[in-house]
């Protein structure tokens, strides 16, 4: 009996001896092949982000230095008029951009979904601006909104002499000048995503609502939009992460002017970091940008993946 157990034990443990000693080197090739990706994820994305956050607590000027100043940079940041204006501008642009992009995107998608002719043509027209850069977008709208030759000039030349529409030179409405251009560039994408969402809805829903005699608009509001919740969530995340990166458009269309009335955070970071020899400020400002992304994304991720895990 004891012998048998002994033998069984020996057998059981012998596989251990067959194990290759270094499992790390097993299937080495995929690991080597992933080095660039792993380095990007760990060194650039994770490491770079941490580095910036850490150095935002220093007084780095022209070069990064490790002389700690606590929250000084943040205090200076929040007492800078330019930064406050930037934040306000971004908030204004962000809210309007979010609402209008969603409304226009969904409306266009719903219109295109109504079994119309030339759907492909309309879709091509609405989406082509997305292929263009923000620089091109900004420059062409700068020209269209030109006070002398653009919209204002045209209306005036038609006889309405007192007509004023000069957003790019009016600090009060300059953000709307940017908004017109931003919406032009970005709504097509959201329309496409919404259209795909509409196409993903079972056609029987429409038949059922027709049988029940529910008016079209009510079907959209009460049935279709609630069903498209995930599509809207995706769209909001896309729009929001685009808004925070708003930079090129401002540079091209207004250069932050008139004065500082169309400054945005990303531009503030670029100026302090590469123009103002004030790295610490730039790091602090970009850390604030990161923080706002976290504030937007964490609830989304929680809702999205928390729900999935529970479900």
């Amino acid at each position: 009996m004891a012998v048998a157990e002994e033998a069984g034990h020996a057998r059981r443990s012998s596989p251990r001896a067959d194990r290759k000693p270094f499992r790390l080197f097993h299937n080495l090739m995929p690991k080597i092949a992933l080095i660039p990706m792993i380095a990007t994820a760990l060194v650039v994305f994770l490491g770079g982000t941490l580095w910036t956050v850490v150095y935002s607590f220093t007084s780095s000027g022209l070069l990064p230095r490790r002389n700690w100043v606590g929250l000084d940079q943040y205090e200076r940041l929040w007492s800078s008029a330019k930064w406050i204006v930037s934040i306000q501008n971004l908030a204004l642009y962000g809210i309007f951009s979010l609402v209008f992009t969603l409304v226009i995107g969904f409306t266009l998608a719903a219109l295109l979904d109504r079994k119309i002719r030339f759907e492909d043509t309309f879709r091509t027209i609405f989406l082509y601006p997305f292929a263009l850069s923000f620089i091109v977008t900004g420059l062409v709208w700068q020209w269209i909104l030109n006070p002398d030759f653009g919209v204002q000039g045209v209306v005036r030349s038609m006889g309405w002499e007192s007509f004023t529409f000069n957003p790019l030179n009016d600090p009060d409405i300059v953000m709307f000048g940017l908004l017109i251009a931003g919406l032009w560039q970005g709504t097509g994408l959201i329309m496409c995503i919404m259209l795909a969402g509409l196409r993903g809805i079972d056609e029987d829903i429409w038949k059922a609502s027709r049988v029940d005699g529910i008016p079209t608009w009510k079907t959209y509001v009460r049935i279709i939009i609630p069903m498209m919740r995930p599509v809207f969530v995706t769209a909001v995340v896309l729009i929001a992460s685009g808004i925070i990166k708003l930079y090129d458009l401002v540079v091209a269309q207004t250069s932050g002017g008139p004065g500082i009335s169309s400054e945005v955070p990303a531009k503030y970071v670029m100026q302090t970091m590469f123009g103002g020899q004030n790295l610490g400020q730039g790091f602090a400002a970009s850390t604030m940008m990161l923080l706002s992304v976290v504030i937007i994304l964490v609830p989304w991720a929680y809702l999205e993946f928390g729900r999935r895990k529970r479900g």
Binding site: V44, T49, T52, A266, F283, L290
Partner: peptide
């Protein structure tokens, strides 16, 4: 990392 604003990683790069 795709969601981190580029400005955060510009200088470290």
């Amino acid at each position: 990392g795709a969601f981190i604003p580029y400005q955060v990683m510009l200088y470290p790069i």
